[in-house]
Design a protein around this nucleic acid. Sequence first.
DNA 1: CTTAGGG
DNA 2: CCCTAAG
Length: 540
Amino acid sequence: MVLQRRLEYGFNGYQVPPTPRAPRSARKRVSSWKKNEDHNRMCAFDLLATVAGKLLLEVDDSVSKIDHEEIKIVNGSGSKPNVCDKGSCNKPFFVSEIIKAPDTDTCSGPASGITVSDCKIEDINQKQMQTGPPENGKLPFVNNVDCNLNLVIRDDDDDDDDDDENSFEGSRRDTLNKKTVRAPPCMRDRRIRRLSASKQWKISQNTDVYRNKINCCKYQRPLRDYPFKKRRLYQLDNPSKSDKSGFIEGGSSLDATSQDSHVKLKIKSFRVPEFFIEIPETATVSSLKRTVMEAVTAIFSGELHVGVMLQGKRIRDDNKTLSQTGICHDNELDALGFTLEPNELQVSPLLCPENQPLIRYSPAQTVANEVVIRQQADSPMTNSRNITVSHHEMSVDDKSGLDSRALVTVPANNTGELEVVPVRKLKGAEVAQRRIRRPFSVSEVEALVEAVEKIGTGRWRDVKLRAFDDANHRTYVDLKDKWKTLVHTARISPQQRRGEPVPQELLDRVLTAHGYWSHHQAKNQFKLNHQLEPQTCRLL
DNA sequence: CTTAGGG
DNA sequence: CCCTAAG
């Protein structure tokens, strides 16, 4: 089967089990695509087994005879998994209306949050793709797929252990408190951002969701150690407690302190964006089903964002409580809706000609936070309303409904340089901002070269402290990277060099120092004679 | 956190 | 510049 998508699309599935670490010198990193491939496949498979459960039971034996190579899913952009290509991003999957939840969960396990009870192809016709006629001229065209699934939102009643000490957030706090002396503010902020974008967290959360789903299907996954304790997505308390409480109870107030008020929701259906399936006429219906299932699975295996709509209006403020936003027991059943949006949806302004608001989620007392469909869990970092880029950079307001095209212009900083921080990427709950490019000036290069000549390569923190201590925007990683490019620059012909020309004299010194230190193991030599070495290096 | 190295 | 394994 040729799925024209990449399974790694936003979904990392399970964490790679810890493998013995090779010595640093032996580190050769495998491409992340390669690394994740099998895991993603596994995720897709698990999803298939889990989400499709019932459907697959209907697949008759003949499916095994189908040559999957004949099946091709044309998913919008072609190779990209972006399901919102070609403007369809303005049509997010539409999820659900509120309907009354059954007395018991559909799934037997206490952790169950989502089941698919039925899937059907709603509209298959012989329309041709708008993007061009298919080769055979007969292309089944799937407009949308409706699935039934249940989603139960529960309040946490017995939140007795919040794992705060061991939580990601807590550990980060500790780290920061301990290390503030060493890390300049800008670097600390960067680390916060890094951590907030850490896939470790996401993977953990993803796994959490799936493990729950797996449990629901009596499918055990081996336990793993996670770098951080996972924040529970929803409470695994005694189902009977919430069941007997009814779907909605308590007063109209549903704030954080009224723990006994419940809003139970059942997602009856969702709609996926338009996608295309090409399948030969000779294929069986079962293979068609499976193909469609694969496509749906592909969508579900990506990171999804949940949008909350109340009375047709999008609820943007994730920090409000349900009652504050008007979600309470006396809502009309269809007043509340959810949208599922693929993760990459908001990324490219080109693909989203109309302003697609960026939705971020707050972990506390929000609808979005509790929706277990989400595979992309919140990072605790998003708990704060603002993401502070750095002390002199711009704060991005959580509630501003950021446009993917937004460019946040910030005032000139101390050095007179203007910083423009594009909102580049939305990955789940985090907005990862790429720093603006700041080419090294010749004087900076000179300072770097001089520092490396004295300190050597391999101790970039010291290089930073020596020569760039006051340059908050230059991290030691930056210096290491710059040295790498300097070495490269020095080795290529002047015609191939780009950017502001670096004096040849400096480049010569780069090569000299590089050659010297690569033979002298900067780390070890430094301890012995860090004052003598520079002289030697210079003379070489 | 730092380092190292690939992307 | 980013990302992240390894230490």
